[in-house]
């Protein structure tokens, strides 16, 4: 049995560890709220953007944007993977990467090449090591308050590749924040938009908020300067807002996952401390009993 002092140092170091995990848990708990506020603040933009896109889809233009047309031959697939910068978040990133890899494998099985754009340090570290996957862009250290500007670069890399026919399909991978306990790894189709557009119109019909456009007659916008330029701009902004939202969702998920992981770690530390204390007390008692019996034995011998 270990000596009393050894056990005591072990208890002490476990207590220190519990302090650290406890602090991390509290920090994450407060950051979840902030991340959720950010998510809430960005929602009106996304909602109005979807509305405008739905209107545009209904307008009878003679111009169809390349982002809206589906390509028959899919030779290259792009993934935008949103991950965290830091670890200690349980299985959050691992789960996400595993789902991504499954999807990547499927596409590779169909003979498509795969390009990845990584957002967050963890995704960069992971995907740069995978063979047969090209890392074409990355953005890291978005911090606690991600800014849209930080994401413009990576999004442009993807959009340019798509416009140049270097990518035929683009997916967005991130952790969807359902609630503090549940974060769902999601793979959403981002480009071409036609896959998304039908969903949008359905959602629009269901919520029926705001002013609905009458579809009784053909109408079209007055485009300034022209349809192509405006739609190009609109689509770019739309994609940006979708990716930005994903980054915010992922941020909230990160804090939630870390909070849960750190709570588990603190609980474990408490349990270890309890067990060690028990062992320590037993050892102490044994030592005292031994001492007494030695004294008694000694006294008897005299």
């Amino acid at each position: 049995m270990a000596s009393g002092r050894e056990i005591k140092t072990k208890i002490k170091s476990t207590q220190n560890m519990r302090k650290v995990t406890g602090a991390l848990q509290m920090v994450s708990a407060s950051k979840i709220r902030k991340a959720q506020d950010l998510m809430k603040a960005s929602r009106p933009y996304a909602r109005l953007m979807r509305k405008v896109i739905a209107h545009v889809a209904q307008a009878s233009t003679d111009f169809t944007h390349p982002f809206l047309t589906e390509r028959e031959n899919v030779a290259r697939v792009g993934f935008i993977v949103v991950s965290t910068d830091r670890g200690l978040a349980g299985g959050l990133n691992s789960n996400l990467f595993r789902r991504t890899l499954t999807s990547i494998r499927e596409w590779q099985g169909k003979g498509a090449e795969v390009d990845v754009v990584a957002i967050g340090q963890k995704a960069v570290q992971f995907f740069r090591r995978i063979k047969g996957v090209n890392l074409i862009g990355s953005a890291t250290h978005l911090g606690e308050k991600p800014k849209l500007e930080d994401l413009i670069g990576v999004i442009k890399v993807v959009l340019d590749a798509y416009s140049d026919n270097k990518l035929d399909r683009v997916f967005l991978v991130y952790n969807d924040f359902v609630n503090t306990i549940v974060q769902k790894p999601s793979i959403d189709a981002l480009l071409p938009l036609s896959l998304v557009a039908t969903e949008l119109e359905n959602a629009e019909g269901k919520t029926s908020e705001g002013v609905k456009v009458e579809q009784t007659h053909d109408w079209d916008y007055i485009y300034e300067p022209d349809a192509r330029t405006v739609l190009e701009h609109l689509m770019t902004r739309y994609i940006e807002s979708v990716v930005y939202q994903a980054a915010l969702e992922n941020l909230a998920s990160e804090h939630a996952a870390r909070m849960v992981a750190m709570k588990a770690a603190s609980d474990n530390a408490s349990k270890v401390i309890g067990e060690l204390t028990l062992v320590y007390n037993k050892a102490r008692q044994a030592a005292i009993t031994q001492e007494i019996s030695e004294i008694v034995g000694g006294a008897a011998a005299v």
Binding site: R105, V117, I130, G132, S138
Partner: peptide, 22 residues
């Protein structure tokens, strides 16, 4: 910004360590 994103990826690829299959 796009150029910066590409450069970052290239920098990450430059010291990637041992590679793995999917």
């Amino acid at each position: 910004a796009a150029l910066k994103a590409k450069e970052e990826a290239e920098a990450a690829l430059a010291n990637r360590g041992p590679q793995m299959d999917v």
